[in-house]
């Protein structure tokens, strides 16, 4: 199923017939979609459907086997320039446990060449309500707090595209609300977002578009005004049953 969205401006993400194979297994089997500024794609599907592989290709961590993927007009794998446009959130926090939240976020800011590092770090931590615990070692924080720091780390360079793989994993209600609010703010500011989640309600509350993946393909794709939560729930359950 191909899916094209037009928001008037040039798309932030353009994916055409994208495949990615691991040996003989195709994790992505011809995915096509595009996403413009301020748009959010909620991606659902069972484990092994190819959702994380799609995000890893867009983050520059995996090379496509065939097809084409562009971020901000840059063909992937596009090296440093393409990677500088992307913020990656995962259920793995990607943090250094011996360092503090402030040090982790500051390290990321320096890698991304952020100007006025200290102010950006403080702002990112404040947005995720982590200023008070900013100097505690990450290993001393709860899983949910670590996830908040991970989100602050991913946002510190103001990415044009946010890739969020199970971002609500480990977050309590407050953390989930802060994340939803932050993603909403980013959308309003023109950031494109792809959220992978198993929680239909959370995903659909953010989305301008939604898709269900199964065996490396989009088996359902709809823009927001045609999203029917009941129909999605049915397709999602069928995808889960089909593996």
């Amino acid at each position: 199923m191909s899916s094209t969205i037009s928001s008037g401006g040039p798309p932030i993400v353009e994916v055409a017939e994208l495949t990615r194979a691991f040996g003989t297994r195709r994790a992505l089997a011809g995915v096509t979609f595009s996403l413009g500024r301020g748009e959010c794609l909620a991606l659902f599907g069972p484990n092994g459907a190819g959702k994380t592989t799609l995000l890893r290709v867009l983050a520059g961590l995996l090379r496509p086997s065939s097809g084409s993927a562009r971020v901000s007009g840059i063909q992937l794998p596009g090296g440093a320039l393409a990677r500088s446009r992307v913020g990656l959130i995962s259920h793995r926090t990607m943090l250094y446990e011996a360092l503090s939240p402030r040090e982790n976020v500051s390290f990321a800011a320096r890698l991304y060449g952020v100007r006025d590092v200290n102010a950006r770090v403080e702002d990112s931590l404040r947005r995720m309500s982590m200023l008070e615990r900013g100097d505690a070692p990450v290993r001393s924080l709860s899983r949910g707090m670590q996830q908040r720091v991970s989100i602050a780390r991913a946002m510190v360079h103001t990415p044009q595209l946010v890739l969020a793989d199970e971002p609500y994993s480990g977050l309590d209600d407050g953390g989930a609300r802060a994340l939803t609010s932050l993603l909403g703010e980013l959308r309003s500011a023109g950031t494109a977002i792809i959220v992978v989640t198993h929680n239909l309600a959370e995903g659909l509350s953010l989305a301008t578009h939604a898709a269900v993946m199964q065996r490396g393909r989009f088996v359902r794709y709809d823009p927001a005004d045609r999203i029917d939560a009941t129909a999605y729930s049915t397709t999602y359950r069928e995808a889960l049953a089909g593996g």
């Binding site: 983050a59 520059g60 961590l61 440093a80 320039l81 990677r83 500088s84 992307v86 990656l88 995962s90 793995r92 926090t93 990607m94 943090l95 250094y96 446990e97 011996a98 990321a108 890698l111 991304y112 060449g113 670590q146 780390r153």
Partner: peptide, 16 residues
């Protein structure tokens, strides 16, 4: 140290 919670992914996804 980069294997702690996949920190290496954060490093490799950065523009360095």
């Amino acid at each position: 140290v980069e294997t702690e919670d996949h920190a290496i992914d954060g490093l490799l996804a950065s523009p360095v």
